[in-house]
């Protein structure tokens, strides 16, 4: 099973949409790898640089409510995947984006706002890093010499998709 974790990219805003994650003009790319340079290209946030090292090194994204709203484009999870980001943690997700993540064998994890606030307090830590254990339903935040573990729930189906490596393999075996 895939492991989830690594440096965290903090995107402190609600309603980050799929057009900000990957603009429609790049949807004409035929391979997922070709999407790589365009990650979060249209996202405007104070201190955020789509081309900077924090984006390049990230393995986990932390954000707020309604992450991934808008289009059904699976190019949004794909552009994360080809950039090495395999988990997004947020207060809530748009339905299609959330399902697309699990369908690709990646994780979209919801946390209560109070937990997110604690994790966001590490946004200034250069070494901010998260390790996620899908089976145990726990994630551990490391940064600024501190460590804290949070528990989360994902549905049994989503867990099965992560274990199977995605919906195509699962569906092919079961339907």
């Amino acid at each position: 099973m895939k492991t989830f974790g690594g440096p965290v990219l903090f995107l402190d805003r609600s309603d980050i949409n799929t057009d900000e994650i990957i603009p429609a003009k790049y949807l004409t790319e035929i391979t997922k790898e070709d999407l790589k340079p365009y990650i979060l290209e249209d996202l405007k946030l104070p201190g955020f640089d789509a081309k900077g090292p924090k984006t390049r090194n990230a393995r986990v994204i932390l954000s707020r409510a309604n992450f991934g709203c808008g289009s059904s484009r699976e190019h949004a999870p794909w552009v994360f995947e080809v950039n090495g980001i395999t988990a997004v943690i947020a207060e809530s997700f748009a339905r299609i984006f959330r399902q697309n993540m699990f369908n690709c064998g990646m994780a979209a994890i919801e946390l209560p706002k109070a937990d997110l606030d604690q994790i966001f307090s590490h946004a200034g830590d250069e070494d901010a890093s998260m390790s996620i254990d899908i089976q145990a339903g726990t994630m551990t935040m490391n940064g600024g010499g501190k460590q804290k573990t949070f528990s989360f729930e994902i549905s049994p189906f989503d867990k099965a998709l992560v274990t199977a490596g995605g919906w195509v393999d699962y569906a092919d075996k079961n339907y």
Binding site: S72, R73, E74, P77, I96, Q99, N100, N103, C104, G166, W167, V168, A171, D172, Y175
Partner: peptide, 12 residues
């Protein structure tokens, strides 16, 4: 739905 759900829809 996304492309993976579509793929399974087409196939199954």
């Amino acid at each position: 739905i996304g492309t993976t759900d579509l793929e399974v829809g087409i196939l199954k």
